Amino acid sequence: MTDTHLTKIAAGDVTPNHRRGGDIRVLLSPKTVGSTSGFMGVAYLKPGEHFVEHYHPYSEEFMYMVRGTVTARIDGAQEIVLTPGEGMMIPKNVRHRVDNHGDEEACMVFHASPLAPRPELGHVDTEHHDTAHDTAAGTPR
């Protein structure tokens, strides 16, 4: 048996990424734990926030709702509401946007696999996120 060093990562120890809206924290990735097949994290959306529409040309994205309710808009038309305990998979190349129209913060776990050849190729935004108009809890970010 070989000695294997495993690493755990806490969401509170990860710097939030607000570039695409909300609060996205990648916990397990090639950079953090040396994963080779995908990455996983947690995302938070305050009421009124959204993650911009985007797609993944190389990966399927799996989402699992922990708290709150969100609406996933698929290919600009179909809407799917996710509540705690529910999950869904977004296939490769399918545009999706996630909105929190509820009155409590939403929390979801996400996983994308397989990895893109390079990180910058894995995520294609199809709309722009205007951080100047993003007001979480009434204060600009």
Rank of each mutant, 00 (worst) to 15 (best):
V94I: 10
T69R: 05
H18R: 11
D103G: 13
V52F: 00
Y44L: 15
A77R: 13
C107A: 15
H111E: 09
K46I: 10
D23M: 05
Y55H: 06
I24A: 09
A116E: 09
E120M: 07
T83Y: 10
G85F: 00
F39A: 05
V81M: 07
T83A: 09
S29F: 04
A116H: 07
V81E: 09
Q78L: 12
M65L: 13
Q78G: 04
N100E: 01
H96D: 00
R67C: 09
E60N: 13
P16T: 08
I24R: 11
S113V: 01
G102I: 09
H111Y: 14
R67F: 03
F110P: 00
Y58F: 11
K92G: 09
V52A: 05
E79H: 02
G21Y: 01
K46Q: 15
R67Q: 15
I80E: 02
V42K: 09
A106D: 00
P119N: 03
R95L: 05
P47K: 14
R20E: 11
M63S: 08
M40E: 03
A11Y: 11
Y64I: 00
I9D: 03
V26H: 10
H18V: 10
H50W: 07
R25K: 13
N93V: 09
F62M: 11
G41Q: 03
P114N: 11
V52L: 12
K92H: 07
